[in-house]
Design a protein around this nucleic acid. Structure first.
Lengths: 354, 354
DNA sequence: GTTAGCACTCTCAACCTTTAAGTGCTAATG
DNA sequence: CATTAGCACTTAAAGGTTGAGAGTGCTAAC
């Protein structure tokens, strides 16, 4: 059986309608609101046929129809009409990103907050872990009590501190010396290489073996997503959607949300090539709950990968809205980061002119 | 009316029973399980009297009795019998704290995870913010792109990095110079003093005014609890308690939990003097939801304030268990931190002997 | 002061009934 | 031959009824 234009039109109406109302769509409502020129019986025939094709299901015979995951996928690919954001929403994005660029963590938190607010879904982000970055330098800063702070500078950014236990006989001078040695040793290496050269380094470095081992552990910990790389906003938004009036669903959802590890797995995907990625239901046999959809976008701006941001929510998700928001946030990010870099360059020029 | 010993005994039974079963307690069940030597009618009289005193309430005439917040308070003060943790639980604590002491953040996360696991309630912690600590030194580490990392060492610990925008004409040498100047300027000051001397410092420091202003902003941000100072574990545990079979309650709870600011307010209390603090219902007209209790303990070990840890859950909370767990975790923490310091000293001695 | 006994109240679950919504099918129509 | 009107059929949801069970409050007796 082929998909006639009319079938597509009807399918689109059903999905649109269901997304907006959360109520199974009946033939009558379609003819009343949208296709006033044909009769409900005709629509019924089409609906039955769409059901046979796997696009629609019904919970019970007198319950109207509901789109299947397959229908959502088709809808996103071919039927969906992307809207524009209202001026209010655009303003909101602009305001939110103004002056709040203090550091990466705040930016990320801010981005998820904005996404969550505008879409009304729970927003998650995972920042790129440093795996592929190369080490520029390492510093061990003394901080008393036999503890030093390890600061790692990579090609892309500064990685957050880890604390390292020092042997007590190591004075500040020793520390500085060790710091320089370590830095030289690792400079230019990718973080992902650390694991492989571990044995050799430890062997070569008998003197500071203990410290070295701790440094290596710390470096290794950056090659997988860490808890602080996963950010969540608007967990409470799920209560705004009727599918989560059932306590069981909420529990399910929250249990997933509560584990940052799982979240990282869900959000980090095969998003290397495509800009926006939609996972519907248990499509990608991941840890995504059966009754959830995940829409993510991977952003990069000014040559930097800024991470993957997205939304997790019920399958009956407002895909047009979500995708539009993600796109616009992406643009705003690009402007922010790109713009900043451009500003800097302008400054340079100006200073040179003086 | 006075509280006879029998009344106290009966009240204790009611609270114990209700904590364990979540079912309103009837006179019959009391005489059957606990006070087999008196009749249910006698107990009924006592129950009626306890109700008059404000310790018990009933939802409807034939529904058995339920303790009031006042009853819980009295129970905790006078009636509760603290148990001991099982060997299994003690083992669990010991194992959990082994080798996981990498840094403060991990420790805190770990502590809340343990508390949540053992009590079966949601656990929260807030680390002391640096308000009262004095600054030991400040360092600005260059990290390219006109950005520097601010590392603050206080009397107690190292504060996490903030990124600071640098004027582009500032080379690494300038940065180092500025870093030293700033460090000298602030050394010995309490973080809480920064706010007051702000004007003067900015005036004195015309040359690096912009940078200085950013440094001051960063320092100021540590005088109030920051998001990363609030840690949460086991949010999903609430589903294990029957009061949260109602979606409305869950929503309420989660909305509070979702806001780290609110959480900080709730957890940070007037815990300066007392070790363990119990807030029941809307007792302390804080943001604590009416139907919640919060039990917190403030820990310090080895002279360091390690923060406030606790549990948030339904009013019908297993207070004996929770309090016992908090106490034992406190001991374990003390051993861990105290022990570490002691180890260090032993090391010193040994090294001197050599 | 304590207790047995009983009437009273209230919830809860099971069951039934009604209503409204929506479909599937059939036969008629252009 | 696609479309449609018409109607029987199915089902969920809402409301009402009933009976069982649990627990109390009260009274009178001990």
């Amino acid at each position: 059986m082929k998909m006639s234009d009319r079938k597509k039109k009807i399918l689109q109406i059903v999905v649109d309608e269901y997304i907006n109302t959360a109520v199974p769509v009946s033939s009558k409502s379609i003819t009343e609101k949208h296709l006033t020129d044909i009769s409900s019986a005709t629509v019924r025939n089409e609906l039955a046929s769409l059901e046979e094709l796997g696009y629609l299901t019904q919970f019970h015979t007198s319950g109207g129809r509901v789109p299947s995951p397959q229908a959502y996928r088709f809808y996103i690919e071919e039927l969906m009409q992307k809207g524009n954001l209202s001026d209010k929403d655009l303003d909101y994005i602009e305001q939110a990103f103004k002056d709040k660029s203090r550091d990466v963590e705040h930016l990320i938190k801010n981005v998820t907050a904005v996404i969550s607010e505008l879409t009304d879904y729970t927003s998650v982000a995972v920042t790129p872990h440093a795996d592929a970055e190369t080490i520029r330098s390492l510093s061990l800063l003394p901080c008393g009590d036999g503890i030093a702070l390890l600061v790692i500078m990579t090609s892309e950014r500064i990685l957050r501190d880890s604390f390292i236990d020092m042997p007590e006989d190591m004075g500040e001078d020793d520390l500085e010396k060790a710091s320089k040695m370590i830095s030289e040793l690792f400079a230019g290496k990718a973080l992902s290489e650390v694991r492989e050269t571990e044995e050799q380094i430890l062997a070569d470095f008998g003197q500071y073996r203990e410290v070295m081992s701790e440094v290596i552990e710390a470096l290794k910990s950056y090659t997988r997503p860490r808890e602080e790389d996963v950010v969540l906003s608007g967990a409470e938004k799920i209560f705004n959607h009727p599918e989560y009036e059932d306590i069981g669903n909420v529990k399910n959802f929250l249990t997933v949300i509560a584990s940052k590890d799982k979240l990282a797995d869900i959000i980090e995907g095969e998003n290397d090539e495509i800009q926006i990625n939609v996972k519907i239901g248990s499509s990608g046999d991941k840890d995504v709950p059966d009754d959830c959809s995940v829409v993510t976008a991977t952003y990069s701006a000014g040559g930097k990968n800024l991470g993957t941001y997205g939304v997790i929510g019920p399958i009956r998700m407002d895909y047009p809205k979500v995708i539009t928001v993600l796109e616009n946030v992406g643009k705003a990010l690009e402007e922010l980061v790109g713009g900043r870099i451009k500003d800097k360059k302008d400054d340079d020029n100006e200073q040179k002119r003086r």
